[in-house]
């Protein structure tokens, strides 16, 4: 074919104007990334130096209690499991509630629509910290005693569910009317259409923001330490820090644990996102 041969022909000349432009752009991008990486490394070194306790050129850096840190590293670190457990339990509850709330927002039946918007408004209108205490401290007055863990999961789940419902709603709205019509035309019931056609597309759309929510939940789970009964990273840091007047060391270690956790989760999140983008959209 004629068109094929012209395309093949252009490939035999690798240095067309367009390709040179692309190469220049790629070089620029690579340079930028390397600059960013190098600066990150330097900032990290400065941070480490700042806490090294050395006296260099008359500048005394912060001296940390190494003995305390070595002794309590395991104690604080063993809270990671609890942190991840409370975060994953809460995100599951949040996803469930968010889906209900998002579907409620699509309802044409006023009470259902109202229930959904009422929930979202109430939860988004009050602080998460208050909600955790409400479940843990206020409910016992009504005869409902929840463990610190359960209260934390309820509060985090309800809170994130309200925010995530917006993400799901946008996901559902991203599925065109034509998709529902095509499903209806082959005889699918509304339930089948939702399950087989609309939800899979909406969830795909919602997965990246859900990943972000999970990452920020691992950090907000620290608030549950306030109940005093969930022995996650933050609780442990505060406990040993206060007991031995080593708050600086304890909180620094907790901060590093949280940071590492978000770095690892962000890495997987980025890969997941890339895979979804490459897929079938």
């Amino acid at each position: 074919m004629k068109t094929d041969s012209t395309i093949a022909h252009s490939h035999t000349h690798p240095t067309t104007q367009a390709e040179l432009l692309i190469q220049a752009q790629q070089r620029k991008k690579r340079g930028f990334r390397m600059g960013v990486g190098a600066t990150w490394g330097m900032l990290l070194l400065v941070l480490i130096f700042l806490f090294s306790g050395q006296n260099i050129l008359g500048f005394q850096t912060i001296k940390l209690d190494g003995e305390f840190m070595r002794k309590n590293l395991g104690f604080i670190g063993s809270g990671l499991g609890e942190t991840l457990l409370i975060s994953s339990s809460s995100i599951l509850l949040a996803i469930f509630l968010a889906l209900l709330a998002a579907l409620g927002r699509l309802s044409t039946f006023p009470p259902i629509y109202a229930l959904s918007t009422f929930y979202v408004s109430l939860i988004r209108g009050t602080p998460l910290y208050l909600q955790i205490f409400f479940f843990f401290l206020a409910l016992p007055q009504l005869g409902v005693n929840l463990s610190g863990f359960t209260a934390g999961v309820f509060a985090l789940g309800l809170n994130y569910g309200a925010y995530m419902s917006e993400t799901f709603r946008a996901g559902l709205a991203s599925v065109s009317k034509g998709q529902r019509e095509a499903a209806a035309a082959i005889g699918m019931t509304p339930g089948q259409t939702m399950r087989r056609v609309v939800l899979p597309q909406a969830l795909r759309f919602a997965i990246p923001p859900m990943g972000n929510d999970f990452i920020s939940m691992t950090k907000d789970s620290a608030l549950v330490a306030a109940t005093g009964f969930v022995h996650e990273v933050m609780w442990r840091a505060v406990k040993v820090g206060r007991a031995q007047f080593n708050n600086l060391e304890a909180l620094l270690m907790a901060a590093i644990f949280y940071w590492m956790m978000t770095l690892i989760l962000t890495f997987f999140q980025t890969r997941l996102e890339a895979r979804l983008a490459k897929g079938d959209r």
């Binding site: 034509g178 019509e181 095509a182 499903a183 899979p200 079938d280």
Partner: peptide, 8 residues
């Protein structure tokens, strides 16, 4: 507009 299911 075809309306094929993009996830299949």
């Amino acid at each position: 507009e075809f309306n094929l299911f993009p996830h299949m």
